[in-house]
């Protein structure tokens, strides 16, 4: 059964990824759809940021990650390079975890 799971996950994930590019490649979408596509990136990224910061399984939590992400956001808003923001955030998280 384990191999069945591996096979289903692999074929399913690849299918989800290739349907769009295969069927709709190079086609110019209508204007309303272009607006949706342009907004998909910020919408998706926001979903990834908040869930990977504030969730632990099915619980909403505020823990060390929130401190790191908060600092990261401030640094990025004042245009500090991403690599610096990443290092600062992980140091803060490691320190907070050590202290708590």
């Amino acid at each position: 059964m384990t191999w069945v799971l591996v096979l289903v996950l692999a074929t399913g994930t690849i299918a989800l990824k290739v349907v769009g590019p295969t069927l709709a490649g190079g086609v110019e979408p209508p204007q309303a759809l272009t607006r949706v596509i342009a907004l998909l990136t910020p919408a998706l990224l926001t979903g990834l940021v908040v869930t990977s910061t504030f969730s632990s399984g099915h619980d909403l939590v505020i823990d060390a990650r929130a401190a790191g992400v908060g600092l990261g956001l401030v640094l990025l808003l004042i245009r500090v390079p991403l690599v610096v923001a990443l290092i600062a955030a992980s140091v803060v998280v490691a320190v907070v975890r050590m202290l708590t």
Partner: peptide, 19 residues
């Protein structure tokens, strides 16, 4: 437990802020 897990939300933020 190393604090590396926070790199994902901050990386995504790095892509999100310019948007």
């Amino acid at each position: 437990s190393w604090g590396l897990d926070v790199l994902f939300p901050v990386f995504y933020l790095g892509l999100l802020v310019p948007e």
